[in-house]
């Protein structure tokens, strides 16, 4: 299996936000902690709405959290 098309900096951004816990981020984005774990681990690509919610939780633009990797 290749690298996921969408990568993210959620782990680093949590670290930068005073080690925000996965549970805290999950509460802010109104999802379960399991969803945050799956996103952070690159196992699940969130919907646009959830991606924006996560970016808002960190107070950064969307592209600072998620990046699209061209498959070429």
């Amino acid at each position: 299996m290749g690298k996921p098309a969408i990568t993210n900096n959620v782990r680093r951004l949590r670290f930068d936000a005073d080690e925000m816990t996965q549970a805290d981020l999950a509460a802010k984005a109104d999802v379960t902690r399991q969803t945050i774990i799956a996103i952070e681990g690159g196992k699940y690509s969130p919907s646009l709405e959830l991606a924006f919610k996560i970016a808002h939780a960190f107070g950064v633009p969307l592209e600072s959290v998620f990046q699209y990797q061209d498959g070429e």
């Binding site: 109104d30 999802v31 379960t32 399991q34 969803t35 799956a38 699940y44 969130p46 919907s47 959830l50």
Partner: peptide, 14 residues
Amino acid sequence: NKRYLNGLDELMRK
């Protein structure tokens, strides 16, 4: 059941 599904977060729903 539909209401339950719609109330879940997107990964759980998937």
